[in-house]
Design a protein around this nucleic acid. Structure first.
Length: 290
DNA sequence: AACCGGACCTGTATGC
DNA sequence: TGCATACAGGTCCGGT
């Protein structure tokens, strides 16, 4: 579910509430050990009384930066959700972890109790998500494993082409590789390839610099517009305040049934599997040259 | 080394 | 209606 635009939207919606808040305690939910990287007692002890200073995003990872210099790292997997709630609000069936927080400053009365406390709950039906505490060294190591941020203006098409053209895999598979470029998932890979007019099965080796320039431009356009739309909600995804995104109404190819007319040329869209993921594209606008 | 397929989980939609 | 199967936005691991 959550790719870069969704995680960025969660970050933006949570930041005004979480920045400055202090962790009073961590509470175990249904299956905390499936989600947590550390054993429960270690985690609970290390997060207690820490103050959240800022929220960062790197690729699909969200990091709550603590006053201890640790970061609370959250990856939402496929169905992970972070929800702010009043301490008395009932937890859903798949809540695995909650933080009891004490707010700094005024928050909406619907969210906090009389003592100024509220919850941040982690909810995840499929339990593919992961949460852990990382010290600065661990965070640097994780960040170093990831490819560049597509929206970083310092990233150039030439740099991306250097890493792409030596690969033999289909370009779609490369876009999903987080060590090549961070934050792209199945939805935005399909959308960007359509916008760039590149067939998803096209071999990376055959991409010209001009192809990669179009691809990077398309990635940036799609991701920027998706962030402006607060992400894509197919089924589960919600931002930190429970709101759905609206980019699903702007999707050109992702999720369309094969045979649906291409929004640009009217030809029948096709679907194939690449690297185990379904890929929808227009055979007319995205020809497989070589 | 690079790449692919399967595994990890549950829920939902579809077909028989 | 009941049951089996396929599929879903991500990542890791093992085998080739």
């Amino acid at each position: 579910m959550p790719e870069l635009p969704e995680v960025e939207t969660v970050r933006r919606t949570l930041a005004p509430v979480l920045a400055g808040a202090t962790v009073v305690a961590a509470l175990r939910g249904a299956h905390p050990d499936d989600i947590l990287l550390d054993p429960w007692p270690v985690f609970a002890q290390r997060i207690r009384r820490r103050r959240i200073e800022t929220l960062e995003r790197r690729g699909k990872y969200l990091a709550l930066c603590l006053d201890s210099a640790d970061r609370l790292l959250i990856h939402l997997g496929m169905t992970g959700e972070l929800r702010l709630s009043h301490p008395a609000a009932p937890a859903g069936a798949h809540c695995h972890l909650a933080l009891v927080l004490r707010a700094e400053g005024q928050l909406p009365p619907a969210l906090v109790d009389r003592r100024g406390r509220f919850l941040l709950r982690y909810h995840d039906v499929r339990r593919f998500g992961r949460i852990g505490l990382l010290d600065p060294v661990g965070w640097a190591a994780l960040s170093a494993r990831l490819g560049p941020e597509p929206l970083d203006p310092a990233l150039t098409a030439a740099e991306l082409w250097e890493h792409l053209h030596v690969r033999r895999s289909p370009v779609k598979a490369a876009l999903l590789d987080q060590t090549l470029i961070a934050g792209i998932g199945n939805i935005y890979a399909d959308e960007a390839l359509f916008q760039a007019g590149i067939h998803p099965a096209r071999r990376c080796q055959s991409l010209t610099l001009a192809d990669v320039e179009r691809l990077l431009t398309a990635l940036r356009t799609v991701l920027t517009e998706a962030i402006a739309s607060a992400g894509t909600t197919i089924r589960d995804y919600r931002d930190g305040t429970g709101r759905a995104g609206s980019y699903q109404f702007r999707l050109q190819v992702y999720g369309k049934e094969p045979g649906t007319p291409c929004p640009r040329c009217g030809a029948a869209l096709a679907r194939i599997r690449i690297a185990g993921r379904s890929s929808t594209f227009c055979p007319q606008c995205q020809p497989l040259l070589d």
